[in-house]
Design a protein around this nucleic acid. Structure first.
Lengths: 86, 86
DNA sequence: TCGATATTTAGCTAGAACGCTAAATATCAG
DNA sequence: CTGATATTTAGCGTTCTAGCTAAATATCGA
């Protein structure tokens, strides 16, 4: 999961999809300078990490953010905000 | 910064140093199966990302976590926990 | 100064990541 | 069925990452 958000393009995909609620693959790919297959692979990486999920709607692949999964990361970071002695 | 925490060993280093407050490089390296130079590089990566800082104490290099830096990541994650419409 | 201790730097190799183009797959419209 | 649209899969070359060993650097104790 951490590796998935290590790439700037993937972080931006994640934010963009989150803001919109859900987006088709092409709509996402259209916002990036990268070639479609490149963005397509980023989507696959994000999905493999459990950060995105997708379902077909006709010929579109619609992606949405998995917030629960991101919650795990926030939870992990929480360890650093609590006092280690407490 | 995200790339820095993409590696399991580096996440563990971060947590371990945090729990202890501060640790010498050798003390850290001793806890991993990896060769010292490998861990040494992980430390450099974490420091380059601003997640660790170090100072010499005699012949020891003592590392500590930079919490403010981690705060930025938590802040970024916050975007996903707030409602995108609000 | 000399040897031991603590740690890093240098340099190598194997494997993964990331970009691309070209081709394949699947759905819709006529 | 046929052609157009939406997206992925396949495959290639380059660059980055992560492991290692061997050598260099710096400090301490005698």
């Amino acid at each position: 999961m951490c590796a998935a958000i290590a790439h700037p393009a993937r972080r931006q995909i994640l934010l963009t999809v989150h803001m919109r609620g859900s987006m088709a693959a092409g709509e996402i790919a259209g916002r990036f300078a990268h070639a479609w297959p490149t963005t397509s692979r980023h989507l696959r990486v994000l999905e493999a990490a459990g950060l995105l999920s997708h379902k077909r709607q006709g010929r579109n692949h619609v992606y949405a953010v998995d917030h629960a999964r991101l919650g795990l990361l926030t939870e992990w970071l929480g360890w650093f905000h609590r006092d280690p002695l407490g």
